[in-house]
Amino acid sequence: MPNQNPDSSISPSSSEQRVAEHNVAIFWDLDNKPPKSFPPYDAAIRLKKAAQKFGFVKYMIAYANRHAFSYVPPSVRAQRRDRKTWNQLETKGVVKPDEPYICRVCGRRFYTNEKLINHFKQIHEREQMKRLNQIESARGKRRVQMVAKYAMKMEKYKCAARDILTPKVGYGLADELKRAGFGVRTVSDKPQAADVALRSQMVDMMDRRIVECLFLVSDDSDFVEILKEARLRCLKTVVVGDINDGILKRTADAAFSWQEIMMGKAKKEAVSVVGRWKDQSVLQRLEWTYDPETEKKSYYNEIESEDSDIECLSSGEYGSLLDTENDGAWWELDSRTKEVKGPSE
């Protein structure tokens, strides 16, 4: 049987610790900080790019209840009203588009947006539902083969439906965040349910020591204690929010606003922030601290080693060597050497 390290179950190995030193986890409180002013997919991608400047983004988690996913921002509602009005004018022939609308699935052209929508629903949406039903009814190897067969068509449909069809619930927040790589999790409608789930996830990752940097998107002051706990465990913390002088930003090691994230300013500032962190870690390793207990032990160890040397000399461990080399008094050495060398001369 191979040898096992008895401490492996208690603490992670050195290789795991080295890997964890460069890992970043993004925690997004969608109940408190949804991307109202920006498209969800663009906001998620820019957030990920900013977090990548602090290390390897290993975890991206977003929590919210169903109300956050069904909410439609005023700007999106205004765009939908304008689009509906424009479609009515196109149907009546009052206005004409500069270029025809092209179906991104089959390539057909339409001169009104309403005709494109009707075509997409009557043909391509039905085809998509038929494919999904076939995959759902299949089992085993046949199911795997059908998924592989329809993968490209289904992905093409999803990309086209994202721009043509209006989401039945909300404005596609969950789907857009999933497309960006986030793990979206829905919690109960109880108050602070998302905060409790996020805090539990953050504590679990800190206990397992699998990340070095916590990237929190929220303005909720309930996360202050978690940030303090992370700093006590020597983890780095970054906060993204819109409250400039909030308690979260004062507690975290670094803080940015949504505007800085979307403009790319956070990516540039992250380089200098990481440089300061590295300098601080180097100074901490070089800093000398006085520990009375350690100094006392080293002092007594030195005394004991000197006493042991004296005891060895007095006990005669080195006596034979001293007797052979110096078997007489020091004033008799010259005369004895002359006596030995006399006859030969």
Rank of each mutant, 00 (worst) to 15 (best):
N23M: 11
I45Q: 13
S14Y: 12
E287I: 00
K130G: 13
E304N: 12
S257L: 05
S315Y: 01
W28V: 00
C106V: 00
S308R: 14
E136H: 14
I310N: 13
K121N: 06
Q79T: 08
D29L: 05
T112M: 01
D29R: 09
G181N: 08
P35G: 10
D279H: 10
I247Y: 03
G183N: 15
S281A: 15
K265L: 12
V217D: 03
I123L: 11
D323W: 09
V340H: 08
A254W: 06
D207W: 10
D291W: 05
S320Q: 14
S70M: 06
G328T: 10
K158H: 09
I135H: 05
N133V: 11
Q134A: 09
A43R: 09
C103A: 05
V147H: 09
Q17E: 07
S13D: 03
K130Q: 15
F215M: 09
S335T: 11
K36I: 05
I303Y: 07
M202Y: 04
I261S: 01
M154K: 06
R109S: 10
T186A: 06
Q52F: 04
F215H: 02
K341Q: 10
K149R: 01
Q88K: 11
K53Q: 02
Y59L: 15
S314C: 14
P191G: 01
T186F: 06
T85Y: 11
M206D: 02
T166P: 04
E21L: 12
M202F: 01
D327Q: 00
A193Y: 00
N326S: 13
